[in-house]
Structures are given as C-alpha cells and as structure tokens.
Nucleic acid binder design. Structure first.
Length: 213
DNA sequence: CCAGACGTTGTT
DNA sequence: GTCTGG
DNA sequence: CCAGACGTTGTT
DNA sequence: GTCTGG
C-alpha cells in the first residue's frame, strides 16, 4: 500500500468534472500497479476507458514488462524509449481522489499517509498510454503509466503530476504535438494545496485506508 | 557493429 | 537475504 | 515504497 | 521498434 491511489468520487461527479461518460467501474476503489484503472484519453475522440496500470509498450514480448512501468518521470519522458513517442499522441488523465505515500518521521519510523486536495477535489493525474497485443489470445491490452515529478514542500520525494483545470484540455487534445508546450503542462504539485493525513495500515482494509488516525 | 534493455522508487 | 507483485 | 514469496516436475 | 553499452 504505497504506490496506491484511490478513487471514491462517484461516476456522476467524474462525468460532471471531465464532461465524458464513464464506464461503470469494478468493485475496487483502491488501485495498485497491474490493476485496471479509469482513464480519459483522446484516441480519435475524447472518452473514458479502463486500462491496466503499468504500461506495456507495444513492442513488449511479455505482458510482464508492464510491471516495471507504473510511473514515468516527467523530467525524462522526452528521451526514454518506452515513453517518448507516447507524449505526442497517447496522453491520458487518470482521475483519483487521493494517493498514498510512506513517510519517515524524525525518530526514523515509517508511516503511511493519505494525500488529498484541500477540499477533496478530484485529482487529474497526467498519464501516457499504449496498446499491446497478446499474440496468443489475439487480445489488445490498453495500459497506462502515471507521470511523476518532484514535490516542493510536501516532504515527499515524488508525486504524481496533477493537471490543473486549465491544463487538462490541452493535455487531452491530440492535435497538440508541440513537446515544449506539452511539457509546460507538467508542473510539480503546489505547496499548501494538499492535506496529508496519517492513516492506519496494519489492518489495511479499504475502510481503514480512507480513515485517518 | 550486435545484444540486450527498454523503468521508478528512495537510499547509500 | 533478495526479488517480485501490488 | 512495503509485504510476501522465495520451486520444479509433469499432467490437465 | 529503437536506443545504449560493450
């Protein structure tokens, strides 16, 4: 329960926020890499869909390659083999309500925290997606990765890049291909716009993850 | 040139 | 002890 | 990052 | 498929 994020906003709230209709989601509301998550992308048309979290590049020989690609560093996506071509056309947003991080306290003990926006607004993680074809089953798998950046003042090393409301449309507009413009949309999360809350983790069922200590 | 990787996290 | 899966 | 597994044979 | 390391 580190790399995880959660989505507890309702489908209705998501549809209003992003102005697209969403498929009904599975019973899960806390997600970890390799699970299926909700995304919004502009693949010919703007739409919401389900994708595997953990990007499987189209050239991958095995699906397992995706286990390594849950995250993509914003600073280097323009040069990395697995991501550089996706920045042009395969951008997406992964909606979330909060994410979880471990944090070390002064005495050296570690504790998990939940990070939310001040008024529990919906977060829009910046992401990239790709398709991969399983040659045995002939099935095409859609998968995605979450872009991360450094954080200023949150005392977390890395965090997902959150697209501001003003930046979301451009990020999803597949007619935009200017790399400099696209990269300018990826800003580290802002200081003082977040709530960090200690959470339970030893009896970590979903209810506990949403509750604070 | 070919073979092998293709990634991130946080910690040392 | 070290790697993998979530 | 932490928690949990850490393996192979041959058969379905 | 494409880049990097040797």
């Amino acid at each position: 329960m580190y790399n995880h994020f959660a989505l507890f906003h309702s489908i209705k709230e998501l549809e209003t926020e992003f102005e697209v209709s969403f498929p009904s989601i599975s019973k899960h509301s806390i997600y970890s890499p390799s699970q299926t998550v909700l995304t919004i992308s502009d693949n010919k048309e703007l739409k919401a869909s389900l994708m595997r979290w953990g990007l499987i590049p189209y050239w991958a020989r095995h699906e397992g390659v995706g286990n390594k690609m849950a995250y993509a560093r914003a600073e280097t996506i323009e040069t990395k083999r697995s991501f550089k071509f996706l920045l042009q056309k395969n951008r997406c947003i992964i909606p979330a309500s909060c994410f979880y991080k471990w944090r070390q306290t002064k005495n050296g003990t570690k504790h998990p925290y939940k990070i939310e926006l001040l008024h529990q607004e919906i977060m829009a993680f910046a992401g990239l997606w790709d398709t991969w074809k399983n040659l045995e089953t002939n099935q095409t798998i859609y998968s995605c990765t979450i872009i991360t950046s450094s954080t200023s003042g949150l005392t977390l090393n890395r965090a997902p890049v959150l697209l501001t409301e003003g930046n979301r449309q451009a990020w999803l507009d597949s007619s935009i291909t200017n790399q400099q413009q696209l990269m300018s949309l990826l800003k580290p999360i802002e200081k003082n716009s977040f709530i960090l809350q200690k959470i339970n983790h030893h009896n970590s069922n979903e209810t506990d993850l949403f509750s604070t200590i």
